[in-house]
Amino acid sequence: MNQQFTFQRISSLQMQTNELKKKYILQKVLGYGQYGTVYQGVNMCTRETVAIKELRHSNTDQGINVQVLREIEILKLMKCQQIISFKDLAYGQNKVYIIMEYMEEDLLTALKRDTFSEQETKVIIFQVLQGLTYLHQLGIIHRDIKPNNILHTNLEIKICDLGMAQNLNKLKPQTTRIQNHSYRAPEVFLGQKYCSKVDVWATGVLFIQLILKYNIFQGQSDIASFKQIIKFCGTPTEENWQGVTSLRNYSSLINEEPQPRILLTLLNKKLPPLLVNLIDSMLTLDPSQRISAQDALLHPYFHGLNIEKCLHKIQANRKKINTEQQTYTEVFNYSDGSKAIIVSKILKKSKNCF
């Protein structure tokens, strides 16, 4: 993003916050993050439910911080079914509001409620790989694939939160402070210049987590997560990763006897061979040998998968779930003291949807 890029050039649809209040009703808080809050809202003209991401920035950010600019710039370029779509933009003092399409929940929330079946996981991961293939073909790395950033409605997947994304075509310096450390690829830990394969590694970790309901690389710190990589994927050596011993962080992170790769032993006990082979190729230590997102879509594990048919079946099954309609009234208080009264009809689920 060059220095001449300014917030005013982002959109002809930009609004002041007063105009935001006239166009949208904020219904409830969906979640909180490091940089702001996400609300569920309704477009009063179209009655469409939307997600409104409120991002804070300081007075020293020259109007809006770089991470927010990056996310807006990239979102406006996206024309992919598996990437959350941008709808509108509003701004106020020290705050920016990105209005996006609404999805029911993220995968982290779903994981706290249920374990996904292998077939459901296949449908999810295939769509994630579709979205990543689209990004990677544009030269964009997401750099923060994790359950929180994968949204779904009836298992229809949308990748969100592109604030950490990098456009490789712009040749910007790379930071190693990317990804949650439990999803971080080994080349990032070791200080190697990385590419789109970091997203494939994170997706492989997510693949296992959705099936087993836990992240095998979970650690309390960066070093703890890296040790989990060595525990399951083995120690990086010149035999399995040419040039790895010359990486700048190698000697500080790897100073014990080489460990064997036991990932296959773990997975073979629980998963079918083709799935084990795919995950193994996604979690290959050497990024130059790791499968790409595009090639992963062509893996034999996905042969014969009809996403549209699977999603239609899932949605049809959900319609069979007993529901009851309920009307509720909610008052949302804006920070300036004004109020919005919302009367909504919701469907209360009588049981889990999976």
Score class of each variant (00 low, 15 high):
Q315L: 05
G304W: 09
R261D: 11
T235P: 02
D286Y: 00
P258M: 07
Y301H: 09
E239Y: 15
S225G: 00
T265G: 02
E324Y: 15
L266K: 10
L274G: 03
Q294Y: 05
Y214L: 10
T284E: 08
Q289H: 05
R318Q: 14
Q259D: 04
G219N: 04
G243A: 14
Y214M: 11
D286T: 00
V244L: 12
P260Q: 07
I307T: 13
A224P: 03
N306A: 14
Q220E: 15
H312K: 11
I279L: 03
A296V: 13
Q220M: 12
C233Q: 03
G234R: 04
I254C: 02
L271E: 13
L253M: 06
F232T: 01
K231N: 09
Y250G: 05
E324D: 13
L264A: 14
N249V: 13
Y250I: 01
N317M: 06
S246P: 04
H299V: 12
T323R: 11
P272S: 05
Q259T: 06
L305E: 13
Q325M: 08
E238I: 13
N255Y: 14
L283Q: 07
P272C: 05
S252N: 05
Q289C: 13
E324P: 08
D295A: 08
G304A: 07
F217G: 04
Y301W: 11
K231M: 04
G243M: 10
Y301I: 12
I279M: 10
R318P: 09
T245S: 15
A293E: 07
Q220Y: 13
S252Q: 02
L311W: 02
Q325P: 04
D222I: 12
N255M: 06
R318K: 07
E256R: 02
N317C: 05
P260L: 06
W241A: 03
N255R: 09
V276Q: 04
I230P: 03
I307D: 00
L275C: 02
Q289K: 08
L285F: 04
I321D: 02
I262P: 00
M282I: 05
L305R: 09
H312D: 11
G243L: 14
R318G: 13
R290F: 03
F217E: 08
L311Q: 07
Q218G: 10
Q242E: 12
S292F: 12
I279S: 08
S252F: 01
L298Y: 08
I279T: 10
Q220V: 12
P260A: 00
E257Q: 08
D286L: 01
I279D: 03
N268L: 12
S221P: 08
I314K: 08
E308R: 14
P287C: 05
